[in-house]
């Protein structure tokens, strides 16, 4: 529990990285969002037994992360969070026909999709992503949970960290005992509600009546280079989806 303080920089890391100034960061948020959605659509549309075609999709996160200067640990940390769920899903199909390939396919798809979303969050401010989702007519009811989680998760973590520190300082540095867990979690929820209420009030008092709608700096329409980026990226994804580049390259070196 005392290590919760270490989780705060982890939660804020994406927003910190999104302040970067690389070429990728400077692209219009709509271009990055569209590219990510196209990428995910292509990846998840692969048949469950095709693993060679999928592997070529690794190029996108690798190249983009290098250009945007996003460290590998950023992806690894987020992949570790998704790993248990993904592993469970993959294991469920392991003993079906072509199970081994399906198992690998699920894991690769997890790596690719989680990397793509992580890349988007590390190169685009959360408010900008929300603004573009609004531009794409995604209803507020779907955008609100995304923004609320993003906004209040750090508040919740800070409260939990403060409480656990106070607890450990009066319990010889120990973890929260099970007998105290109920009241600890209850207090955490109450404190978090209070904190969230104050944040919500601060928003309302500055004119944000529903405490959900988000403002963004990305009011301008995409420029020519953004449109070229979207077109090139989507074209590349479609080509990689249709043609199995791994097999094509492999066939160049193997005589029939």
């Amino acid at each position: 529990m005392p290590n919760l303080y270490k989780a705060i920089p982890f939660i804020n890391e994406a927003e910190l990285l999104a302040q970067g100034t690389s070429f990728v960061h400077k692209l219009h948020p709509l271009a990055k969002l569209t590219g990510t959605l196209a990428y995910i659509a292509c990846v998840i549309s692969f048949p469950r037994t095709n693993t060679t075609g999928l592997s070529a999709f690794l190029l996108y996160p690798v190249i983009t992360a290098a250009v945007a200067n996003i460290p590998l640990r950023f992806f690894v940390a987020r992949l570790l969070i998704a790993a248990p769920l993904s592993l469970a899903a993959a294991l469920a199909g392991l003993f079906a026909p072509m199970g081994a390939q399906a198992f690998i396919s699920v894991l690769i798809k997890t790596v690719l999709t989680v990397s793509a979303v992580s890349l988007l969050t590390a190169t685009t401010k959360m408010t900008d992503v929300d603004a573009q989702l609004a531009r794409l007519y995604v209803p507020a009811v779907f955008r609100a949970p995304f923004m609320m989680i993003g906004r209040y998760l750090s508040a919740l973590t800070e409260e939990a960290a403060a409480m656990s520190r106070a607890y450990s300082m009066r319990s010889r540095g120990g973890k929260v005992a099970m007998r105290n867990m109920g009241s600890f979690l209850g207090q955490l929820i109450l404190r978090s509600f209070d904190r969230a209420g104050r944040v919500s009030l601060a928003m309302k008092l500055r004119g944000n009546g529903n405490a959900i709608a988000i403002t963004s700096t990305a009011h301008n329409a995409p420029r020519a280079r953004d449109l070229v980026y979207i077109a090139a990226l989507c074209a590349a994804f479609v080509l990689l989806r249709i043609f199995d580049i791994s097999i094509i390259i492999g066939s160049l070196f193997i005589n029939p």
Binding site: A18, T127, A202, M203, A213, T215
Partner: peptide, 15 residues
């Protein structure tokens, strides 16, 4: 509550 100082100060104006 906004990520950067600029965005936070500008929040009310944009809202």
């Amino acid at each position: 509550f906004m990520p950067t100082v600029y965005e936070d100060i500008a929040f009310g104006l944009r809202s």
